[in-house]
Amino acid sequence: MREDTPRTRRTRRSWRGWGGVAGMAAACALVVTAVAVPLRGAGAADGARSATPGGVLSAKYASTDDTCDHPEASGQRPSTVDGDAVRRIKEHGKLIVGVDQNSYLWGFRDPATGQITGFDIDLVRAIAKDILGDPEKVQFLTVPTDQRIPMIKAGKVDMVVRTMTINCSRLKDVAFSTAYFEAGQQLLVPLQGTPITGLDTSLNGRTVCTAKGSTGETKLKEDSHGAKVVLVPNQLDCLVRLQLNLVDAVFTDNALAAGQAAQDPSVHLIGQKVTTEPYGVAMNLRDTDLVARVNKVLEDYRSGGVNSPWMQAYRHWLAAKLPDVTGPPAPLYKN
């Protein structure tokens, strides 16, 4: 994020200097979570309402190789105004979305129906319904992890909805919606017979598996707590090795780990999340109108309290393995 460093400083300076304005924006963002009402034209009026203390200020920086303030703050306010990108999608008649077929609970192909389903996919359907009026008008492209950003930049997909963490280094290449989930790196271990209690000294002498190029790898490089690290191409390969007793623990997103635990009842998440990783819908930097549109869909998706579409999807897909989530993360905007 070389060229972003000055901008980052500027942002920080402006944050300090215009404390009032920034505070207002933050408060405004908090309100969205707390009240969960549609926030069309969110602004000073909403900001005036009292805000419940929430996640905004406690948000940590997910990226470990790059720092910036609040990467999860989306650049576009929600809007329904059709721009070039939205018009392009309407003309095409189908929303082209990069997804994963192997992340259980998030985006996976159900062999029984042959359809891709999951928490991410429910969100994709909601976006398609809003833009094209039909949740089925989606062309799913399976995108490997390392192809997410290239596919967006090349315009081969309209968006990527694939448990993609919003972080500072990625902001150079793609635009993100507001965060729609907050995950974090956590350890997955067998239910029985493991001395591992978390990312601590109990890992000493143990073998931990994580995906190559993942945040987990970076984190373990910083401090492996004496563990031997096994790197595999895909997080699911870690579950295979855990099942075969080739490794003692898996270190990955708790969101993905929950998917793994759901496929094998003899493993579970332990300890605490050691990072905070907001997931966002990634789009082309040029498609500002689409980012605004998705943010608007997300506002609708989050609204409705315990019966919001978000909570329904959460209960359907995630609650069993990722309990204790009370609601979606608060949206945050840059301006």
Binding site: Q101, N102, S103, Y104, F108, R109, D110, P111, A112, N234, L236, D237, L239, V240, R241, Q243, L244, Q260, Q263, D264
Partner: peptide, 14 residues
């Protein structure tokens, strides 16, 4: 795979 778990594919690749 029969249970619809993607880890089946990972086992096959292993």
């Amino acid at each position: 795979n029969r249970q619809g778990f993607p880890v089946g594919g990972a086992h096959l690749r292993y």
